[in-house]
Write a protein that binds this DNA or RNA. Structure first.
Lengths: 144, 144
DNA sequence: ATCCTAAAACGAAATCATTTCTATTTAGAG
DNA sequence: CTCTAAATAGAAATGATTTCGTTTTAGGAT
């Protein structure tokens, strides 16, 4: 099983280690974004030994390879999200329940080009994220 | 002098203390974004006593009031930028020389509304920032 | 199947930017 | 000029994240 994940790892030029696969599994099952420590706590029972630094390292590498996406959180801690959408797009993240919804790519690419043209600079990356409360949390009193 | 800054502080409901004014002055003179510690090092000679926590606190408060803007940096440290543009807009930041250029507001507001409508959520804030190399740094070998 | 090597993981310790806390000082309204 | 809430000092704590030297392992080569 997890052939999908193993393939994704291979495609990213990364070894398909059991820990990496477990991280991907766990994060895929997660309804929203999660922190390295949370994932570690849930995963460490599955392994004789699993270091927190390993989780940090892998999440960072997986995110750099585009297998995972990173959430920009107001508290500046690290959170990751499993997103199978391979198209260029962005996210709406709920600050209450942590759910993540896809936002179709908007006109940023055009904006990038315009900025490049106008000021002669070179845009290397961009950040676009909407923060708020999802439907459920907006209705209820944003319980946590 | 700095009547502008004093007024801005008053408008934000903040006392116009000498240290706040100095922080605004220094940051306005800065060509790009700066870190709390950098500002502190440059400012502490002007005062008998000036604590680093004071600089942190003030930058955060000033940013929350909209008098300053915060830069989202890949290294996740805090950087601030004095931006006199009171219109809603975003920034292109040079990761090499730290220069910041304004980007006119693009269609994010429309996107926000669409997301709200479609998923019933409530967008509380958004982040949009382009990262890259400005004209000068793209030409030269991005010297630092 | 076994070897071999670069990649991955360990985990204790370090880092270090940022925040907290309590006492002291000060801006500015009245 | 007083008074009080707001602001500051500064030492100490925090705690998420990273480093480092060692050990283990995935997976291509034999």
């Amino acid at each position: 099983m997890d052939q999908r994940h193993a393939s994704a790892l291979k495609a990213a030029g990364m070894k398909a280690t059991p820990k990496r696969l477990a991280i991907l599994e766990m994060l895929e099952a997660e309804p929203g974004y999660a922190s390295p420590e949370e994932l570690w706590k849930r995963l460490k029972d599955r392994f004789d030994r699993l270091g927190l630094p390993t989780v940090y390292r892998n999440l960072e590498e997986l995110s750099a390879s585009g297998v995972l996406s990173k959430v920009i959180h107001p508290n500046r801690q690290l959170y990751y999200y499993f997103c199978s959408n391979r198209e260029h797009h962005h996210h709406f993240v709920c600050l209450s329940c942590r759910k993540v919804e896809d936002i179709p790519a908007c006109g940023i690419e055009a904006l990038e080009q315009e900025v490049s043209k106008r000021n002669g600079g070179k845009v290397l990356s961009h950040i676009l994220q909407l923060n708020g409360l999802c439907g459920g949390c907006a209705d209820n009193g944003e319980k946590q």
